[in-house]
Design a protein around this nucleic acid. Structure first.
Lengths: 340, 340
DNA sequence: CTGTTAGCGCTTTCAT
DNA sequence: ATGAAAGCGCTAACAG
């Protein structure tokens, strides 16, 4: 019932080794034999067994994409990133194993088999991340997406946006338009990215010889969804502080909420209020369309794969840090501060 | 360097078999031995080898998620679906292998190893889909998401939206509002889903004692992106046929294009034009907000996993069809046909 | 150019 | 309750 290399060999009247080599091309085979083997293999619907092969070659051509255990929900940023990862893998003949096993499964017994992967891409690294430690100890090829915890900074390769300058540029754009009171609806405070963005924001403000107003810096509460976050925080801030003339938003969803609030308050974008956003390149439907920093998540993913495969196939481990830049796309949601 | 079951056995002074059974719990082991083995295993950082194990057990606890070869780009529908799949797997301790290998890799040689999965979930089934044929022949557990090609209808289990009635309901909503000339920007013609939706659309029109106008039925060209599709087709149709007062769109992105066209033409939604959409529940930012049928992709994914795992673990194969219903959410993008 | 043989690391009889 | 030994299906020396 299950057809193996032996069946093919026997039927074709050759040895297992020969059959193996017909497929791998690792040693020359005569036309004649080759033809015969291929013919028989096709007839029998033969497919090599993945495990048997990997058991001996120690290679799977699968890469792991590890997301945080308890929180499996993918955002559209993750989507684009996954698209990039798939594209990179696609080009090289690798497959992707999405690993989002709940940590309670892993801890049930510590002796669960290691993943059948040649290496891992790790998302959303956190301070004191056990996943990183484990892979470094076992010497498993590893690329982080995002900023590593400080203690591993010198030990892993990673790819990230340059979040400081991205935020700085976006803020500067608004400052150049004359805006002074700029509300910043940042990512949640426990994500490393929010700190870098805050830094960039402050740098820009300081650069214009002003003092950052901490009242204007908000973090998304973990238990609130993004649309609600945008809506509630924008509305409250705009009602309480009439001097706010611009908002920077963490994502397209946050803008969804902001636009709702703005309509409710009877304001006009960009005349009364400018809105700028960090985006995953997937914002559409907004009117006016958004001025944004596209974080190019798909490029992040693609680059991570490239680095990982390079690491898998190289003898000596070379640490690399790759920063993906973003360029500002200016659209209708930002404009000069109203005079008066 | 690489620690195997032998190392553990030796160091613990027991046999391989005993070590194996300590982990599997398949036969009783004395307290004493158990403790010793666990201790040594921990000390050595032992992890069982995935392949060696799978080679003999014929089980991987990995399920495959197969997407069309050449077109690896995931949409936000896929994203929600993937979220559902992950959630389902997560609950049962399975992992997900995303298979989007280009078909040119598969065809390079037909004898690429079969995927290391216990079963597959297959997306976007097409007429004459080789992937389905292959899996049926090899008797690999399989669940389709979407409607199977006719010739496999009686041979595979699948989960799908009830696309006929979904389209019918959405169309009826517009008809009840008085609309008669309803443009339908459908999915690409080679996707099975487009046929069911067309059917539903026609049923609704016929139900109101009218004859469907085939001029109003459009399919997305494969090589055009969705936003462009919405923009170009809506604009052209609205310019050429002033009687059109409503549009049904295939997805949120298509609506993005439609809204652009509408603004350009100086029309108002819903006064001049009603817009309704099949959605993945991820539409935000539109003003007015969308009247939609939420297809619940995440539920589709979760259900597919449940069925697949059931199939993997059952002796006799029972065919199942599961339909996920969708309810209409009425919002500001649809309204009564203007009188006059 | 091709065949023979010895494993890869694990589970699973079959003994004891 | 434990051990010994026989594979799972494949690749990789080693011979010829």
């Amino acid at each position: 019932m299950r057809v193996t290399i032996n069946d093919v060999a026997q039927r074709a009247g050759v040895s297992k080794a020969t059959v193996s080599n017909v497929f791998s091309g690792k040693r020359p085979i005569s036309e004649e034999v080759q033809k015969k083997v291929l013919e028989v293999a096709k007839e029998l619907h033969y497919k090599p067994n993945y495990f048997a092969k990997s058991l001996v070659t120690r290679e799977t051509r699968i890469i792991g994409l590890c997301m945080q255990g308890e929180n499996v929900k993918l955002s559209s940023f993750h989507l684009s990133l996954l698209n990039g990862v798939l594209k990179g893998c696609y080009a090289k003949g690798y497959r992707v194993l999405v690993n989002a096993l709940a940590s309670r499964f892993n801890s049930k017994t510590e002796f669960i088999a290691a993943d059948p992967v040649d290496g891992d891409i790790l998302l959303d690294p956190a301070e004191d991340d056990k996943r990183i430690k484990e892979r470094i100890e076992k010497n498993i090829p590893l690329i982080l997406i995002g900023k590593p915890p400080k203690k591993y900074e010198k030990m892993v390769s990673y790819v990230d946006n340059d979040n400081v300058s991205t935020a700085e540029n976006l803020t500067n754009h608004l400052i150049e338009l004359g805006h002074r009171e700029i509300l910043f609806l940042n990512a949640p405070q426990d994500k490393t990215v929010s700190h870098d963005r805050e830094k960039g924001y402050k740098l820009a403000v300081l650069g214009s010889n002003q003092t950052p107003n901490l009242e204007l810096l908000k973090y998304k509460p973990d238990d609130m969804n993004s649309i609600e976050y945008g809506y509630l925080y924008a509305k409250k801030a705009l009602e309480e502080n009439k001097n706010i003339t611009a908002i920077i938003a963490d994502s397209g969803k946050v803008v969804g909420g902001i636009y709702d609030a703005v309509r409710e308050l009877g304001l006009t974008i960009p005349d009364d209020l400018s809105v700028a956003v960090f985006s995953d390149g997937n914002t559409y439907g907004f009117d006016p369309s958004l001025t944004e920093m596209d974080l190019n998540p798909s490029v992040l993913g693609e680059e991570a794969v490239k680095m990982l495969i390079e690491q898998i196939n190289s003898e000596k481990k070379v640490l690399k840090r790759v920063f993906i830049s973003s360029e500002i796309k200016i659209n209708g949601s930002t404009g000069p501060k109203k005079v008066g």
